[in-house]
Write a protein that binds this DNA or RNA. Structure first.
Lengths: 156, 156
DNA sequence: TCGGATCTGGGCAGAATGCGCAATGGATGT
DNA sequence: ACATCCATTGCGCATTCTGCCCAGATCCGA
C-alpha cells in the first residue's frame, strides 16, 4: 500500500502518546476527525498497521535472556509442521525459515542462561529439530523501530 | 515484576480485540473497572507492557524482505557508537550485541533482494562495520508471540 | 473534462473515561 | 487477637470521545 506523510504523522502521534484520541489527533494535525479515522481504518485494513495491542516485554516479567537459535529440522517433517510444534513452546517468540546453513531461526526467551539450556532441551526433545546453534543477545540496543521506515516510505 | 492470571487475561483481551474498552473488559472478567485500570497502569509502569502503539508492518508498505545481518564492527568505535550510527538508517529495525563470531546482529528490511544489497552497502559505507554476513528470512511463521509466555509466567 | 474518491465541518445519541469517595476483604506482622 | 496496609469494589458525576450520519467542497487520475 502507498502511504503519505499524513499517514506517517498519524502513526507517529499514536505511537508517541498512547493516550491520544482520534479527536485530539485531528486537532493537532489540523484535519477533520473523519480523515484521521479513515486513514487509520485504511491502514489497519491494508495491514500497514499490523497490530495495535499491549506488548508484553519478557525482560520485565522474568525472562531477561534472549537468544537466536538456528535450527536444522528433521527432514521427514516440513517447515510448517516444525514451526507449529515450536509454537507450542511459550518461550519461542518468533520463527522464520531462513537461507543459509540452517533451516529455521527462532527467537527464544529464557529466565537465565541455564534456563535457556532447558528450553533448548525441550526444543530438541520434540524430535522436530536435529541440530541447533545459538547466539545470545548480550545487549539489545533497539527493537521494533519501524516508524522511521514508515516515514521514509511516506517521503517517497 | 510478578504477574497473575488476571493480568494475563487482561492483556489477552486487549490483544485480541483492539476496540476493547476498559469498561467492557471489566464486565467480561467480572471485576471492577478500577481493578482493570489499576492492573493496566501497574503493568505499564513496570514495563511489562512495553508499548501499546500501532505497529507498522514493513511487508505491507513496500519492504517485503527481512534479513538478519551479523556484523563485525570497527574496533575503534564502541558497540554503542556503532548502534547509534545504524539507528540512522531507517531500514535497520533492530540491533543487538551478540555472543559468537560477530559483534552485532541487525534486523534489516528491504524492498527486494537487490535493495538489500543497497542497504548493506549503506551500512558498510559508514565505516562503523568492517564485515557482514546475512541470513535472509524466506518465510516468517510467526513473530512477536509474547502472550503465551506471559500466560506461562502468570501460571507459575 | 468528467467521475470517483477523499476531505470537510457539522450534528447527535450513546458510551467510555478520569476522578473522587467510603466500604469491604485479605494478608501480614506484632 | 489486633492493628495496619493494600487491592478491590461499587457508586456517582462532569467531561470527553466515539460511531454514525449527512451535504458540499476539492482533488486527482483516466
Amino acid at each position: 500500500m502507498k502511504v503519505d506523510e499524513l499517514d506517517a504523522k498519524i502513526v507517529r502521534l499514536f505511537t508517541e502518546e498512547q493516550r491520544m484520541s482520534v479527536l485530539e489527533a485531528s486537532r493537532i494535525l489540523k484535519v477533520a476527525r473523519a480523515t484521521v479515522q479513515a486513514r487509520l481504518d485504511r491502514m489497519i485494513a491494508n495491514g500497514v498497521i499490523a497490530r495495535w495491542a499491549p506488548e508484553p516485554e519478557p525482560r520485565a516479567f522474568g525472562f531477561p535472556v534472549v537468544a537466536f537459535c538456528f535450527l536444522t529440522i528433521n527432514q521427514d517433517l516440513g517447515h510448517d509442521a516444525v514451526s507449529k510444534t515450536l509454537a507450542e513452546i511459550p518461550e519461542v517468540i518468533e520463527v522464520h525459515t531462513v537461507s543459509g546453513d540452517s533451516d529455521l531461526m527462532a527467537r527464544v526467551a529464557a529466565r537465565s542462561n541455564s534456563d535457556l539450556q532447558r528450553v533448548l532441551d525441550i526444543i530438541m526433545a520434540t524430535k522436530a529439530v536435529v541440530r541447533s546453534s545459538s547466539v545470545i543477545a548480550l545487549n539489545t540496543h533497539f527493537e521494533g523501530r519501524t516508524l522511521p521506515l514508515l516515514e521514509a516510505a511516506a517521503r517517497g
